[in-house]
Design a binder for these strands. Structure first.
Lengths: 392, 392
DNA sequence: TTGACTTAATTCACGACTCGTACTAAACCT
DNA sequence: AGGTTTAGTACGAGTCGTGAATTAAGTCAA
């Protein structure tokens, strides 16, 4: 049921160090005394931890802070410039990379279009990853880990891609390939892109204020990332969140997977375009922008989008009934169309949720854009530090 | 995102003590040397922990064990006779109580029919609870906690009933009422009955071998308990698992909640009876036994139950797509009808799950019967001990 | 029966950790 | 200048886990 390993005293120190780091991140810079109050640790303990963190380059000390009586405190700030987590996203038409330091600043944030046609190759990803890593290492940064977000199913060990139809990278042990490419010790993980985006919204986006959130990706397919009690819900085999194929849609609409009645056959990009009678553009986002532009002028388009919102709401109501998120974040193509689909979706939630009068999840629109998945991947790479699993 | 408190050295000891306890429970009795190997702790540490556990009455020591060469080890067994977790279940027509010791033996297991008609009163529960507690305390047992399972929504703090239509116990702060009734320090929690049953199956039932399971209650209503990574999934407000009202059923069937299309309007007890053309009996279980008896003789009944299995399968496929359980446990009235509904449900899972060829959840039938919820509640009361949160 | 051998459990000295108290440092106020 | 107030540090005490050495308790062979 639960199996953390044995704990020695140095584990205790990592735990408390992580506690200080989390406090600095979530509640901002503070003096040692203030940190002692926030964490409940003794002042002496805070002193040694902060000193250690200082030599490790995780924090910087602002000079003095005049405030009323007494000796002024010296607030420590979580800059962590030299401590970096790497995040990558592999998508059909681009590669994205984000380098996030402990302070939460993205020191690198890149999108690289894929050269030829067809999805990128593993070699292209490795080239991008090693290039970025090398430049960071050359600048004296120390990298604590890397995560790659992919559109597909990832094994539960977070190392191997089980099934990624859009990339054709089936059964690729991506984590090991990258680790050997990096040469040095740089623990690497692979995760689903929706999971990563959900983590990004929960740590840097619009759902930072809650512990339970549900992120919905909206492109041609529909995926979900579920954050429960601050942690990703991955499921027994790592395949949780493939909500696009929930059998709750119209039985007459055929899904790309060959089945009928899949949710994404009703609310995916193609279904949306069919309902408004428009053609697909360059990217899901540009397509949605074009639709939003027409919706601002034409009532029938607005009506069609409200219908889409209803279908969306039915799926969201199903999901909310099961996992009870505090916040639902809509991403991808739903963002530009938010004002047209969210009211209808909200109406369905109010009508269908068993505990609607007690508690209703709040629908919000993603604010992170195309970097979401890579940012969440980088955050995931840093997670071990904040959890006390990794020492710095 | 994560907020465990500060850790001192005594916390470390509790952590490692809990590690030993878990090892003893899940892998059985062992000598100190064997425990050191299993947990990774030093032999000296195991020695002191075992000694402490011995004086606390959690373990007992079998005398010697002749096995080949060398000094024979003295296996320690997790009897924990004096350390008790209490579990209660409040249902419409009965109260159940289970007293579970650390060794996993239920020392008391009682069902009490409710006297008058209508659901039991809070006073009846308190009477039963204090009676059982007093008799255990009189026998020298020490009670580490109590949990009450109720059919309804429980606030996220696990203390207050938010909504229990079948009991009429809305907005009752049951935890505080029981704690004051107990007098002494006996931390008490309240939880949903499906959650408790899920925990029971995961700790003593048919899903002990996996970390991710989904339990489905089948009575007039349908509920779910979700165990993810060995822990209950409760959701942002504690309302997760109200799957009976997922909007995935037949739009023409009216649910008891007044809506249409709820899953339980298609697979609840009443819907099942309608499909086979039979009347409701005394209890859901006796009703299902009568149906199973007729199904063993009449093909039309079997056909109707297969149809029910298909509806069941659609809901299970929806759930499995979202949370990816390794095992699905069917409880309540589904148990006697298992052989008639499971094959159809399995067929739907195979046809509908996106990753069906990679991984398919296994449907199993509950083995714990009517005590399931109370047993899980007792297990939940002991959970703090195994997690290292409570010292003994 | 005796003595070598093997394995289990305990003892002990050591290092790492946290904590509380006493002490020093650095400001402001009168 | 001297007092006051608050921040940070130094230090000893107590707890914990660890590894090596030691003791305990059997088997096995002669």
């Amino acid at each position: 049921m639960m199996t953390p390993g044995p704990s020695g005293t140095e584990h205790l120190r990592r735990q408390n160090t992580a506690l200080v780091l989390r406090s600095l991140r979530s509640e901002g810079a503070a003096t040692r005394t203030e940190l002692a109050r926030r964490t409940g640790l003794a002042k002496a303990t805070i002193g040694t931890i902060v000193a250690e963190l200082g030599t490790g380059g995780a924090i910087s000390e602002d000079q003095s802070a005049p405030s009323g009586r007494g000796r002024p405190g010296r607030p420590v700030t979580l800059t962590g410039e030299s401590i970096i987590g790497l995040g990558f996203e592999v998508n059909v038409d681009y590669l994205a990379a984000v380098a996030l330091d402990l302070g939460g600043n993205d020191r690198i944030s890149t999108i690289r279009e894929v050269s030829g046609d067809g999805p990128p190759s593993v070699d292209e990803l490795i080239a991008l990853a090693t290039e970025i890593r090398d430049s960071l290492v050359a600048d004296g940064h120390s990298i604590v880990g890397a995560t790659v977000a992919v559109p597909g199913l990832v094994e539960h060990d977070n190392r191997t891609i089980a099934w990624a139809p859009n990339l054709g990278w089936d059964d690729v042990d991506l984590a090991t390939q990258l680790e050997t490419a990096f040469g040095e010790n740089c623990p690497t993980m692979v995760d689903n892109d929706a999971n990563c985006a959900a983590l990004a919204e929960a740590s840097h986006g619009v759902s930072t204020d809650v512990q339970n959130s549900l992120y919905i990706t909206g492109t041609v397919g529909i995926g979900a990332g579920i954050v429960h009690d601050g942690r990703l819900l991955r499921g027994g085999a790592g395949f949780a969140g493939e909500v696009g194929h929930m059998p709750i849609g119209d039985e007459s609409s055929v899904c790309g997977c060959g089945r009928t009645g899949c949710w994404e056959a009703s609310v995916g990009l193609r279904a949306m375009l069919r309902s408004v009678g428009m053609q697909e553009g360059e990217t899901p986002l540009s397509t949605a922008l074009a639709v939003a532009e027409r919706a601002s002028r034409e009532q029938p388009v607005r009506d069609a989008l409200a219908g889409l919102g209803t279908s969306l709401g039915i799926g969201l109501a199903t999901l909310a009934t099961v996992i009870d998120p505090s916040v639902i974040v809509l991403g991808g193509y739903f963002v530009p169309l938010g004002e047209y689909v969210v009211p209808a979706a909200n109406g369905v939630l109010e009508a269908r949720l068993p505990a609607a009068d007690k508690h209703l999840p709040e629908i919000r629109l993603s604010s992170l854009g195309i970097h979401a998945a890579a940012l969440g991947a980088a955050e995931g790479a840093l997670a071990g530090v904040y959890a006390g699993a990794v020492s710095i």
